[in-house]
Every structure is written in C-alpha cells, then in structure tokens.
Design a protein around this nucleic acid. Structure first.
Lengths: 95, 95
DNA sequence: GTATAGTGTAACGTTACGGGTTACAATACA
DNA sequence: TGTATTGTAACCCGTAACGTTACACTATAC
C-alpha cells in the first residue's frame, strides 16, 4: 500500500505537460479531441482519468497510457484505503 | 504497453482464491459483505473490480489491494488500447 | 475604454457501470 | 425428493464520464 496521499493526476498533467509546453487548456482539449470542460474537470481534480483518456494523453504527449492510468489507480486506491476500517469483511480461508 | 490480452481479474479471483480454498461463491460474497450477484458479475467478467472491492479482497484473502486494482487497470487499458487508432488525437508540442 | 482570449463552472442531458433485491431455471448431491 | 449452489434476468438506485450551452471572471492587446 502507498504511504501517503498521492496527488491527483490532473495536477501532474497540468504541471508536467501543459505548463512546460505553454499549451492552453483550450488548445489541449482541442488536440485531445475532448471538450474543454472535460479536460478542465480533470485538471481541477473533479474527474478522473478514464482508460480512454489515458490513451489520448499517451498519444498527445508521447508517453505511456499505463503511467497515466496507474496514477489514477493509485489515487483512487488511496481514497478507498482510507475507508478500509469501515468495511465489514471476513478473512476467508479453506472451507 | 502490454503485449497480449490480459485475463479478466474475475478469472484470477476464481482460480487463485475461491477454487484453491474450496469456498463457494455464496460464502465468499457473504464474507466480502457484498451481494452474491455482485461477486458473480465479477467472477464471470460482467463487472470490474472497483477500488473498494480491491480493498475488500485484500482483507478477505490477505493480499494487496494494489495488485487487484492493477490487474483491473491492465485489463481496462488493454481494451482501450484496442481502439487507439480510432481516436482523433493530435501530438501536442511547445506552443 | 473596448475587444479578444483564456478559464472555471453551473445547468442540463446521455450513457455506462457498480451495487442492491427478488425471483427463476439449472445443476449437483445426499 | 429435497437441499445447496449457481448464473442471470428484471428491476431499482447513485455516481461518473462525456457532451453542449451559457455565464462570469481575468488578462492582455488595441
């Protein structure tokens, strides 16, 4: 399990892709062929990176789709782990 | 990217957890504190493993939630990659 | 001051999916 | 024959990803 709160993938996208290249949200959304609202939601942490979006990002920025989706998984999992103790699950062993 | 079609995580769950321990679907669903239908959907590839379900599985089988969610991600990503060529995405470089 | 560009986001709709319940048909077994 | 197990259909709900349109705000250029 992860040690600490992973950043939302949207932050990484903004800081490592958009800002360094000086690309506007509008231009990036257009290049990715998604609406400006969809990209903005991701950048501001209001939506996650879907598998298809991961592939789009991998094409646009010549990266790996796996890295994008993994970041999202780690983020989602950390959220879920925060509620681990509230789950009523039994250890399952040989019947 | 992955080389070949990864198995649905539900198959692994059945083959590596339920069958070896001789646990019925009904009993496992009960232990996981989800409905029998929910577990059955996963086992038969009709539903994915959600972040919360990954945590449940990690408790029930004393495994890592990360491994379960990663398997699901790899599976989902492979599906998305199959449609890579149909996406109208532009390479994004410095403005 | 007045365009123009960029941004965030509210409001609305659609589609998909995880999850629940109930109920049914099929299988297997004591 | 009765009981346990299983898959799944039919229905519900909540949420999330996506789209469009429209608005308010900022900044920059003229």
């Amino acid at each position: 399990m992860l040690m600490c709160n992973p950043p939302h993938p949207g932050e990484i996208l903004r800081e490592l892709c958009l800002e360094p290249l000086g690309i506007s949200v509008t231009a990036a959304a257009s290049g990715l062929d998604v609406s400006r609202k969809t990209l903005s939601s991701i950048l501001n942490g209001r939506a996650g990176i879907s598998p298809e979006m991961a592939v789009r990002l991998s094409i646009a920025f010549e990266t790996s789709s796996e890295s994008w989706l993994n970041q999202q998984s780690q983020y989602d999992l950390w959220q879920a782990e925060q509620r681990r103790d509230s789950l009523q699950v039994s250890r399952l062993s040989a019947a």
